[in-house]
């Protein structure tokens, strides 16, 4: 059986079971659900920042994957040690740096500063072309300097924790390729299926199940196509076509369930936090944890 052992455009490094089992944050006493919430929040933050910085979605996806990799595992970063906004900014900066769309540190920091003011409504902020006047989005020169130094520091910490493993293979290109192979893209439903599949791939970035860290791009692309075709009503072969793309039925089934469940997770998160801010800095996190312990003790 053919086995791919090298990283390439097809293959990603995946998180090991030990890394998925626990995280440094949990070892530091951060509850699992709070960690998940923060991770979700920072992913949203990154997505919004990517839109504001006019970065291609590939870079946003890469930065989210890098961010997840940093937090995962007992050797990973801990939420107690680093502000998650800093880490998010650093991962975006790091992902964009070697690409053709490098952003400057000040651009990154300004955008994150601005988004920090607008949270939790990132979507709204990302849609606006001009920042609302009531928000002070400008970083002073001094603040910028300190923030920049912090960014560099977090960046180097991230690289060290990741063992310089910044390779991220994404399923977007594969997805188009597969649609062409299935002869779907040329049909009338083609663009609708592709759009929907891409939407699913973007959604998968927010999944609390860390799909990009547990599945190879080919599986993600296949599952997205499967779901998209079902939703748009485009016909697909009746045989086990996913095996052509080296995805077995179990993986496909799991991914389809996982992808469809993200919506429920997002709604739940929205309800849970409402207009409250998800703690994105170390201080906020500690305050939140104290609040929780107090609540527990009070009950």
């Amino acid at each position: 059986m053919a086995v791919i052992t090298e990283l390439s455009h097809l293959a990603n490094p995946l998180a090991s079971s030990t890394q998925l089992e626990t995280s440094n944050s949990q070892l530091d006493g951060v509850p699992r659900d709070l960690e998940t919430s923060i991770r979700y929040e920072t992913a949203r933050l990154l997505q919004a920042a990517g839109i504001l910085l006019r970065l291609p979605q590939e870079l946003v996806a890469q930065s989210i994957v890098i961010l997840y990799r940093f937090w995962v595992g007992p050797d990973g970063g801990s939420l107690v040690d680093h502000d998650s906004t800093d880490v998010a900014a650093a991962s975006l900066y790091l992902a964009a740096k070697p690409s053709a769309h490098a952003v400057s540190p000040s651009q990154t920091l300004q955008v994150f500063h601005y988004l920090n003011q607008t949270r939790p409504d990132y979507a709204g902020a990302a849609k606006q072309d001009v920042p609302p006047e009531d928000i002070d989005w400008h970083l002073s020169e001094g603040d910028l300097e300190t923030a920049r130094n912090r960014l560099y520091k977090v960046e180097s910490t991230m690289l060290r924790v990741l063992g310089f493993q910044t390779h991220v293979a994404l399923p977007y290109g594969l997805c188009i390729n597969y649609l062409q192979t299935l002869d779907v893209s040329s049909s009338t439903a083609g663009s609708a299926v592709a759009k929907r599949a891409f939407a699913h791939l973007n959604t998968a970035l927010f999944s609390p199940q860390l799909l990009y860290l547990t599945f190879q791009p080919s599986a993600l692309a296949t599952a997205a196509i499967y779901l998209a075709a079902r939703e748009t009503g485009a016909g697909l072969p009746e045989t086990e076509w996913w095996e052509v793309f080296d995805v077995d039925r179990e993986d496909l089934g799991f991914l389809v369930v996982a992808l469809t469940s993200v919506e429920g997770f997002a709604t739940e998160e929205k309800q849970r936090w409402g207009q409250r801010k998800v703690p994105l800095s170390v201080e906020e996190l500690q305050a939140e944890m104290e609040r929780r312990t107090m609540l527990e003790n009070g009950q």
């Binding site: 059986m1 053919a2 086995v3 990283l7 490094p13 995946l14 090991s16 095996e243 995805v247």
Partner: peptide, 15 residues
């Protein structure tokens, strides 16, 4: 028995 391409890629760990 259909054989699928398997991935056995290395993970990552701190330096």
């Amino acid at each position: 028995e259909r054989t699928l391409l398997r991935f056995n890629t290395p993970g990552w760990q701190p330096c």
